[in-house]
Write a protein that binds this DNA or RNA. Sequence first.
DNA 1: TCGTCGGATCGATGGTGGTCAATATAGATG
DNA 2: CATCTATATTGACCACCATCGATCCGACGA
Lengths: 120, 120
Amino acid sequence: MSNQAGSCCAPLVREPLPADSAAGLAVMFKALADPVRLRLLSLVASHEDGEACVCDISPTFDLAQPTISHHLKVLRSAGLMDCERRGTWVYYWVIPEALHRLSTVLEAANPVSDTGSVTV
Amino acid sequence: MSNQAGSCCAPLVREPLPADSAAGLAVMFKALADPVRLRLLSLVASHEDGEACVCDISPTFDLAQPTISHHLKVLRSAGLMDCERRGTWVYYWVIPEALHRLSTVLEAANPVSDTGSVTV
DNA sequence: TCGTCGGATCGATGGTGGTCAATATAGATG
DNA sequence: CATCTATATTGACCACCATCGATCCGACGA
């Protein structure tokens, strides 16, 4: 839910961002606006097979277990991750398309090529 | 300040994000975690010559003037924008390198090829 | 069936953030 | 100097959020 894919993928330096697109993007950026969640995302994404169970990544943080669970839920609600239960453990993985969309939105008009010349 | 350029530019899906890098990135993502600021950034960046004075973009929002000023300050403190006074008006512009860094960090390892197969 | 373990949910709390009215500052103009 | 305009700063208010302890649920093993 809350995935308004499609018209919100133009780099925001190219044309003014519509208000509704901005609202949707803000939800995702808000999910990234926390050091713990950034590290959680990175740990899961860079883990073997691109997925990890909570017990693998929890010990990395000096945080109570409900706090980790809360952050994972935020990332999942924002559409950045998904999870699945396998027996006793719950595995999380990153949704690459979500990251890709955000990456595209942030692309600069002139991606700092090595020419060094600016517009003119 | 708070610009630790260099080691924080590897896509976070490639390797676990160090805690200090995560803290720095979180500051920037936090600045983007608001619809008004996303639209402000986009309006300025897509404006003529890549810069705009506050009076150009303020009327777009139904917000009080101090609120706009506050959001612009957040974006500037995060290193995403800079500004300069020219006579009566203050002009803002986006720092492309900052956007580029964030864009790089969010790059997916496998940019969603159509194969659908995972890894291997 | 019972106890244990992994993980999610609930409720509370302290801190942070978005917003505004009021005020201050800086430049332009008379 | 007086005054107007454009923008920033201050202080306050309310909402939201990160965190925790307590509790609950689902799966496994004895």
